[in-house]
């Protein structure tokens, strides 16, 4: 395994452990986020085992997308004040993208092909949801500093990571003409991934700090 894989897995493991340790103190959306982190961690570990044993871990990524789309749906439905129009967009978009991802895995980019289309759909879903929540935040500002709001970090992590991956996978074929560019893109995704999980962890820590306030002890 490369340095990039080891460091990525180590960070993901640390984030997953810390998130699970905070689980009891978290509100519903951040419990779901912990679920997503653990789900991603489990599939990443499985993908490494499959890659070592069979030399092919690509099928795992088809499930990563479906899991990601579903978790995102429930996280974003619980995370902020959602208007009826936003609710319809969030639910409708997720159902449509799940169907398209399944169709893509069955007919277009089959189980042994890396599902760039599915990743793009997942990216598009996350970016749209992030923008909806950003808009909601502007409509209903709260007194706390923006940097102390877990929703800001969750949203920003998603927005930056999926903004980058969406663009990279949209230009996937073009990138693969040059191995140098591929390497550059991988480093870019690696950096974005680290940012994503650090943002998730920070959001979880911030949310756990509001546990007493939510439960009326403070």
């Amino acid at each position: 395994m490369s340095f990039r894989s080891i460091s990525y897995l180590s960070i993901l493991t640390i984030v997953a452990i810390l998130s699970v340790l905070h689980f009891k103190k978290l509100s519903t959306p951040y419990r779901l986020l912990t679920g997503l982190i653990v789900f991603n961690w489990a599939l990443e570990i499985t993908s490494k085992i499959l890659a070592q044993k069979f030399g092919n871990s690509i099928p795992i990524y088809h499930f990563v997308i479906l899991g990601g789309l579903t978790f995102n749906l429930f996280i974003y439905l619980k995370i902020h004040v959602i208007k009826k129009a936003s609710f319809i967009i969030i639910v409708g978009m997720t159902i449509l993208f799940i169907i398209l991802s399944v169709l893509n895995s069955l007919t277009n980019q089959t189980i042994n092909v890396f599902p760039t289309n599915g990743i793009m759909l997942h990216g598009l879903q996350s970016i749209t949801f992030s923008l909806i929540v950003y808009l909601n935040m502007l409509q209903y500002p709260i007194q706390a500093s923006i940097f102390k709001q877990p929703v800001f970090w969750l949203n920003t992590g998603n927005f930056v990571f999926y903004g980058i991956t969406f663009t990279i996978f949209a230009l996937y074929n073009f990138f693969y003409k040059s191995s140098y560019i591929t390497s550059y893109a991988h480093w870019f995704i690696y950096g974005a991934n680290l940012f994503l999980y650090c943002s998730y962890l920070y959001a979880i820590i911030l949310d756990s700090k509001t546990y007493h306030t939510r439960n009326g002890f403070r």
Partner: peptide, 19 residues
Amino acid sequence: VSDNVFFTLIIGTSIFGIL
């Protein structure tokens, strides 16, 4: 290839900058 590298770098950096 060098053109592609340059082009990709520009696009990548621009997108990151926009975000």
